[in-house]
Amino acid sequence: MYFAIVAIDRPGTTDVRAKTRPAHREYLHTSQAGVTYRLGGPLLAPDGVTAVGTLLVIEAPDLATAERFSAGDPYRKADMFSEVSVRPWDWGTGNPDKQ
């Protein structure tokens, strides 16, 4: 089952994002029990440059596993987000696994 994780940065966390980014990216690409990272990237401000949040798509067996994965993200551990949503998601169009 796929899950979309949408997280919005707290104001003033630009430095936290920059410092934590290497650990965040390593976390995404390190084997996590029951979780496969599929895609992700920063959500941007209207200027198209400034990061204001994060969007991740993962595959996990259930919501509890997806929420544990999200809670373990170094960005979350750094208290960078003002809000986080973890929701089941149906990856239809553009999914390489669905032809």
Rank of each mutant, 00 (worst) to 15 (best):
G92L: 13
T65N: 02
L43E: 00
G41A: 04
P22Y: 05
D15A: 13
R10L: 00
T54G: 11
V49L: 15
D97E: 13
E83T: 04
D9I: 00
Q99M: 01
E83G: 01
V6W: 07
D79M: 03
P88I: 09
K98W: 15
A60P: 10
P11S: 11
Y75P: 06
Y75D: 09
L63T: 12
T36M: 12
F69N: 12
A66M: 07
R21S: 12
R68Y: 09
Y37N: 10
R10I: 00
H29P: 08
F69P: 11
H29K: 12
A60S: 12
Q99L: 04
R25P: 07
H29F: 13
D90C: 10
P88V: 08
N95K: 12
P46A: 06
G94H: 11
V84A: 05
D15P: 04
S85G: 10
P74D: 07
W91Y: 02
D47F: 02
K19D: 14
K98T: 11
D90P: 00
L39Y: 11
F81H: 02
D47A: 06
F3Y: 15
G92A: 13
A18W: 01
E83S: 02
G48M: 07
Y2N: 05
W89Q: 03
F69Q: 08
I5T: 12
I8F: 00
L28I: 15
E59A: 13
D73N: 06
P22S: 08
W91S: 01
R17M: 02
S85T: 14
F81T: 02
A71P: 03
F69M: 07
D47M: 05
Y75M: 05
G94P: 03
A45C: 02
E59P: 04
P22Q: 13
S85D: 09
R17C: 06
P42L: 04
R68N: 11
R38S: 06
G48I: 13
Y75T: 05
I5S: 14
D9C: 00
A64T: 13
L28R: 13
L55H: 00
V16R: 04
G48A: 08
R76A: 14
I58Y: 11
V57K: 03
E67K: 10
D90Q: 14
W91D: 01
R76C: 06
G40S: 15
D15S: 06
A4D: 06
M80I: 10
A78W: 07
V57S: 06
A64P: 04
R38D: 08
E59N: 12
V84K: 03
L44T: 03
S85W: 06
G12K: 04
V86A: 14
M1F: 01
R17S: 01
G48F: 10
F81W: 13
Y27A: 14
T36I: 14
T30N: 15
R76W: 09
E67Y: 02
A64N: 08
G41W: 09
V16K: 00
T13W: 02
Y37C: 04
D62F: 12
D73C: 14
G72L: 10
G48W: 08
L28F: 14
L55G: 00
P74E: 11
D62M: 12
W89L: 08
P61N: 02
P46L: 05
G53T: 02
T50A: 01
P88G: 15
D90T: 12
R10E: 03
D47Q: 07
R25S: 04
P74I: 08
D47Y: 04
D9W: 00
Y2V: 01
T36Q: 11
D73S: 09
